[in-house]
Design a protein around this nucleic acid. Structure first.
Length: 486
RNA sequence: GGCCCCAUCGUCUAGAGGCCUAGGACGCCAGCCUUUCAAGCUGGUAGCACGGGUUCGAAUCCCGUUGGGGCUACCA
């Protein structure tokens, strides 16, 4: 039998990294062993349903390149793939359990349950349903839930793939709800019924489910179905060591995309949170990860989501992009900055300088910081202090002299000599001739043409900008330095 | 509180009894390079939580302690 794994998000909001990492491991296992990856929407809580969440979840998977073989949008042999559309299946299973004496109807009110919980807490008893309705005949036409009759003696063993057998005392497990008053199943029933009907072979889920796994094992036993392989993977923790949540800032996948993280970087990072190929490899493409993935490489300790390491990895991925690809990915951020569309030709003009920018950009939006001045229409915004730099601090007259010297040199250059290498030798010669340190001469030029202290390498920048604009901006700078009021 | 899981540099990890004087990556520090900022190169810093066993030998196996986390809903 081939591997069949499912990702079962509940559409209650945006998918976050912890959640999507589970999907990644599901997907990797399926792809590694030529099995199927199934997306199943677990929308059994009507009160928490969020409109549009399902689309967001599918978008996140697509963005990361995790394709699915069966799902709510594309259907498949076990359709439908939304639990809200599979209600008869759950009711059928629950009814069968009642018939077999493994479940019972319960009409206890939530008030009684609350009171029960409260008194148990006060008495320092473990909380849980007391089984009042277990022997009672509750009519099926009055409001009720259906509970599983859990065994009270012995223990239930969950055979976890990663940890081996984990035993739970049955006496501590209460009769939990399978079918709610509104006719919808709980996760405990729905996941078991669907995993069985959909031939799921491996249940990969977060460790937070381990505690309820014995309930699922008991449900399989009561239904006389074969259990899947249980794989409880460690939770991802935030900087405060607790379970990663919204409190830790940007945890939704869409947020990371917006902040300029590359999907391949995030995927690489997530895969390495709890899994490793060997002792040295840290950079791996999706295909390489797929090729080497195995459940046996998974660790048991929960890992902290360290955003700094992600940033570093992202920077590495940006550097490794082809220049053309880099420009395409950076374009939207530049367009947002300058407020207009950048056409292909304009973008292509940046090709020679792109590699230098790639070395400097850690997040895609920073692309705009290194390129917006190429597309600035009016005068650049900077202080004269920046213009003068360290060397000419408080000496505007000296800075002016320097700028005017550069201007003369650059103006005199032949159009054919407007290349980074020619510009460099001309300006270096000028610095030497003037007895100036190169940095002293270059800083005012850099600020004049880019409006910034930090910019891409100067000569490539001048080449890309062109002689006309360079001269124009240097002139503007000279005028500013000549004005006494600054 | 109860139940369950986990435990190697600050972080992610390698390590399945001798290959460990504990390896790699990120970070951090120093140096080199240098037109800013980066990138790159060199070197360095830093860890087996603690205590008992088992064994000729333990980061690795067992027990306990401590610490951290998860669960404890008619949520997933």
């Amino acid at each position: 039998m081939s591997v069949r794994v499912r990702y079962g998000p509940s559409p209650t909001g945006e998918p976050h990294v912890g959640n999507i990492r589970t999907a990644l491991f599901d997907w990797l296992l399926a792809r590694r062993f030529g099995g199927q990856f199934i997306v199943r929407i677990e929308d059994t809580d009507q009160s928490r349903a969020v409109a549009g969440a399902e689309a967001l979840i599918l978008d996140a998977l697509r963005w990361l390149g995790l394709d699915w073989d069966e799902g709510p949008d594309i259907g498949g042999p076990f359709a439908p793939y939304r639990q809200s559309e599979r209600l008869p299946l759950y009711i059928e299973a629950a009814e069968r359990l009642i018939t077999d004496g493994r479940a019972y109807r319960c009409n206890c009110t939530s008030e009684r349950l609350d009171a029960l919980r409260k008194s148990q807490q006060q008495a320092k008893q473990p909380p849980g349903y007391d089984g009042r309705c277990r022997g009672l005949a509750v009519a099926d036409d009055e409001p009720h839930v259906i509970r599983l009759a859990m065994p009270s003696a012995n223990s239930t063993v969950v055979e976890d793939y990663l940890r081996g057998p984990v035993a739970f005392q049955n006496a501590l497990l209460d009769d939990h709800v399978l079918l709610k008053r509104d006719g919808f199943p709980t996760y405990h029933l729905a996941s078991v019924v669907d995993d069985h009907h959909m031939d799921i072979t491996h249940v990969i889920r977060g460790e937070e489910w381990l505690s309820s796994a014995p309930r699922h094992v008991q449900t399989y036993a009561a239904l006389v179905w074969d259990e899947p392989v249980w794989v409880h993977i460690p939770i991802i923790r935030g900087p405060d060591k607790g379970k990663l949540s919204k409190r830790h800032g940007a945890t939704s996948i869409r947020q990371y995309a917006a902040e300029g993280f590359l999907p391949e970087a995030l995927l690489n990072f997530l895969a390495l949170l709890g899994w490793s190929k060997d002792e040295t490899t840290t950079i791996m493409s999706r295909d390489e990860i797929t090729e080497h993935f195995s459940l046996d490489g998974l660790g048991l300790a929960s890992a902290m989501f360290d955003i700094d390491r992600l940033r570093e990895l992202n920077a590495r991925y940006i550097r490794d992009l082809s220049p053309a690809d880099f420009l395409q990915r950076g374009r939207p951020h530049l367009e947002a900055r300058v407020g207009r569309a950048i056409d292909d030709d304009a973008l292509a003009s940046l090709l020679p300088i792109a590699p230098a920018i790639q070395e400097r950009v850690k997040l895609l939006p920073e692309f705009a910081d290194y390129t917006d001045f190429f597309f600035a229409a009016g005068p650049l915004d900077y202080d004269n202090a920046e213009l003068m730099g360290r060397a000419y601090r408080h000496k505007p007259w000296a800075a002016l002299e320097s700028v005017e010297a550069s201007l003369r040199t650059l103006r005199a250059l032949d159009r054919s000599a407007w290349t980074a290498t020619a510009l460099e030798s001309a300006l270096r010669a000028l610095a030497e001739q003037r007895g100036e340190k190169p940095g002293a001469l270059f800083t005012p030029i850099r600020v004049s043409v880019t409006g910034k202290r930090v910019a891409p390498p100067l000569f490539e920048t001048l080449e890309t900008l062109g002689q006309r604009l360079t001269v124009e901006r240097l002139n503007a700078a000279a005028e500013r330095l000549a004005r006494p009021d600054d």
